[in-house]
């Protein structure tokens, strides 16, 4: 592991020694987690693996390689379905963090407050896991299992994300509530993806909420309620009710109480839906 050469995935996985060494990507979670301790060595530095920097179309999917940073995502030309993910990217830490941190690392860190998870849930992202034995693909919901817990098996790494191509008429929005402008851990965040048909009706709706449960989750009842609604309706926000939030189980912590988080999420979802109608009427 030296020099500036990158290495083949297979060779690197062999070095990975069945997962007995830690994985390093952008380092933005790896180093802070060390506290005052020196960094372990060796590590599997996936930023050196050939091909994992790729971001682009792969068949019916968009593929985000495991070494793609948030800045690279923001700078990439992507369809409107990715707008929400890009909004999240710009709110992650700061530019100094976005230049290092990877999209995939945000998922693997499996923090309840990971800003990347709700928009990727709302995009129906799938996670590609690679081991010396082969490759498997899991829906994101099946990948993050709990606080700091993922479905990764020993010896396996995430090599990329797959996001299905969306119709061009897709509205996508991310909202983050934090108590200051930059470098802030979210109190709550919401992400919506609305696919809109030729008549302006919502034909597919995905809504995800973060920092309000051990793992960010989708609100299927709200999604169902939105199906068939008129996306141009200025009162689209009225579709959301408190009952739709029942899958959430926020905790009380220093950033906010359960009660406040529920109230805030309700408001953020309403605003996101109002934005949809507002922007459509504008254009």
């Amino acid at each position: 592991m030296g020099g500036s050469d990158t290495n083949s995935l297979q060779a690197m996985l062999a070095d990975y020694a069945g997962g007995k060494i830690p994985v390093l990507a952008g380092g933005t979670d790896f180093y802070p987690a060390l506290g005052d301790r020196p960094a372990p060595h060796p590590v599997l530095d996936i930023t050196r693996i050939d091909g994992l920097k790729a971001l682009g179309k792969q068949g019916a999917d968009w593929r985000i390689g495991a070494a793609v940073t948030w800045t690279e995502l923001v700078n990439a030309e992507l369809p409107s379905a990715f707008d929400g993910l890009k909004e999240a990217a710009r709110e992650i830490g700061s530019v100094q963090i976005q230049n290092l941190a990877t999209v995939v690392g945000n998922l693997c860190n499996a923090s309840p407050a990971a800003d990347g998870v709700p928009p990727l849930l709302a995009l129906q992202a799938r996670v590609e896991l690679t081991a010396p034995m082969g490759v498997r693909v899991l829906p994101l919901e099946a990948f993050i299992l709990g606080v700091r817990r993922t479905a990764l098996l020993p010896g396996e790494i995430v090599t990329g994300l797959l996001v299905p191509e969306h119709p061009s008429e897709t509205f996508s929005r991310f909202k983050k509530l934090g108590s200051r402008s930059y470098l802030v851990i979210s109190i709550a965040m919401t992400a919506i993806t609305l696919v809109i048909d030729g008549e302006g009706l919502i034909s597919d709706a995905r809504v995800a909420v973060g920092a309000c449960s051990p793992v960010a989750i989708r609100l299927s009842a709200l999604e169902a309620a939105l199906m068939g609604s008129n996306a141009d309706n200025p009162n689209l926000a009225a579709v959301v009710s408190v009952d739709h939030l029942s899958p959430l189980s926020p905790i009380d912590d220093i950033r906010g109480s359960r009660h406040y988080r529920m109230k805030a999420v309700l408001e953020m979802l309403r605003r996101s839906l109002a934005d949809c109608a507002g922007e459509r009427t504008k254009s």
């Binding site: 952008g26 380092g27 933005t28 530095d45 530019v95 290092l100």
Partner: peptide
């Protein structure tokens, strides 16, 4: 690093090889 501002406390020295 290659023109991009980054926190140098979050970067492994091996990751700047050739940069």
């Amino acid at each position: 690093v290659d023109g991009l501002p980054v926190c140098s406390c979050l970067l492994a020295v091996s990751q700047i090889a050739g940069k």
